[in-house]
């Protein structure tokens, strides 16, 4: 096991720099998630750690060794790909044992390690099948198994759940978290899904446009976002951003209110609006309310509520949870 340090790391394709001056220290055994919108550089950063993309600036340390110029096989890492990338001509057992067979390990040792990994991942009955005969979820487990068998220093996972359906995704999410707790190996996980990031990570790295916006625990990012971008990216449904007179009234350029931080009820400081859409989820009711000078605001109410489309409601943001941002999208201290 080992930690990973990124020191002033950058990546450029020709004259175009896509990752700028990345500094990050990942502790040994930590589960860290890179999250951000498409094109933010999160997969490129992961591939640089894997050795699949060349580092064009700065230092990449895996454990105590500088890994900038090491080939992937010398980095002692394992990677799970979005597309599974299983070898179609090999059986599940051969796929999982491939890396060990390349190291010319004894056959009985390979079989034992494959068997252990298969038991952990409930793949025992499928060891003799080819990937083409497995479901998406089983294939993803084989890909994870292939990584486990190597007992690497660092696990890299590149959007491993994005090809699975919603039910299987949440199931596999739990399995990966349990696996991390059991193995205590450093895991670096890339996703664009902030729910995955929030539920799995010890720490989240939010990337945007090739820069790190913020690094912190899930609740830290949720409660004290360092930028307007992070505030909008973390949390579902996403934070409401209100400009104009409502923001100016509290001395901000932009006012941020999370949907769950509104209450409904009239009063001096309430905002009057008309309900344009209602989503009833059972445990929550989500209202879309058009408020003059603020636009359409998303309001998440705990439990079941009776509001209908067209109703007039009065929204009141909870003062202690309001986020205020300045011109450059930075928070204004309370």
């Amino acid at each position: 096991m080992a930690g990973v340090d990124l020191i002033n790391l950058s990546k450029a394709y020709g004259d175009t720099e896509v990752l700028h001056d990345i500094n990050l220290s990942i502790a040994d055994g930590e589960f860290i998630v890179f999250v951000g919108p498409s094109g933010c550089g999160k997969s490129t950063l992961l591939r640089m750690i894997a050795g699949l993309e060349k580092v064009t600036g700065g230092d990449l340390m895996i454990g105590d060794a500088r890994a900038n110029d090491l080939s992937p096989r010398k980095r002692n890492i394992a990677m799970v790909f979005q597309s599974y990338a299983l070898y179609p001509q090999m059986t599940v057992a051969e796929n999982m044992g491939f890396s060990l067979s390349l190291e010319r390990r004894p056959k009985d040792e390979i079989a034992k390690k494959v068997q252990e990994a298969a038991e952990t991942l409930k793949l025992g009955p499928y060891l003799d099948r080819k990937p083409g005969q497995l479901s998406g979820g089983q294939r993803q487990r084989v890909a994870i198994g292939r990584a486990i068998v190597r007992q690497p220093q660092v696990f890299l996972l590149d959007e491993p759940l994005s090809n699975l359906d919603a039910a299987l995704r949440s199931e596999t999410r739990v399995e990966i978290s349990e696996l991390h707790q059991r193995m205590k190996t450093t895991m670096i996980y890339v996703t664009h899904d902030q729910v995955e990031a929030m539920t799995m990570a010890d720490r989240i790295v939010v990337l945007n446009g090739g820069y790190i916006e913020q690094v912190g625990g899930p609740m830290e990012l949720y409660n004290t976002p360092a930028t307007e971008f992070v505030a909008g990216f973390i949390g579902s449904p996403k934070m409401n951003f209100i400009k104009g007179r409502f923001a100016e009234a509290v001395g901000a350029k932009t006012l941020g209110v999370r949907p769950e931080h509104f209450t409904i009820g009239s009063g001096d400081n309430s905002w009057e609006g008309r309900v344009t859409l209602v989503e009833r989820l059972g445990h929550d009711t989500i209202l879309y309310v058009k408020v003059p000078d603020a636009g359409v605001l998303t309001v998440s109410l705990n439990g079941q509520h009776q509001q209908q489309v067209g109703d007039i409601v009065h929204l009141r943001p909870k003062a202690e949870f309001i986020h205020k941002f300045n011109d450059s999208g930075r928070p204004i201290a309370a």
């Binding site: 096989r73 990677m79 790909f81 597309s83 299983l86 190291e103």
Partner: peptide, 10 residues
């Protein structure tokens, strides 16, 4: 990805 997976596998 198949080529890359094999490179990572060593």
């Amino acid at each position: 990805a198949l080529h890359e997976a094999a490179r990572i596998d060593g």
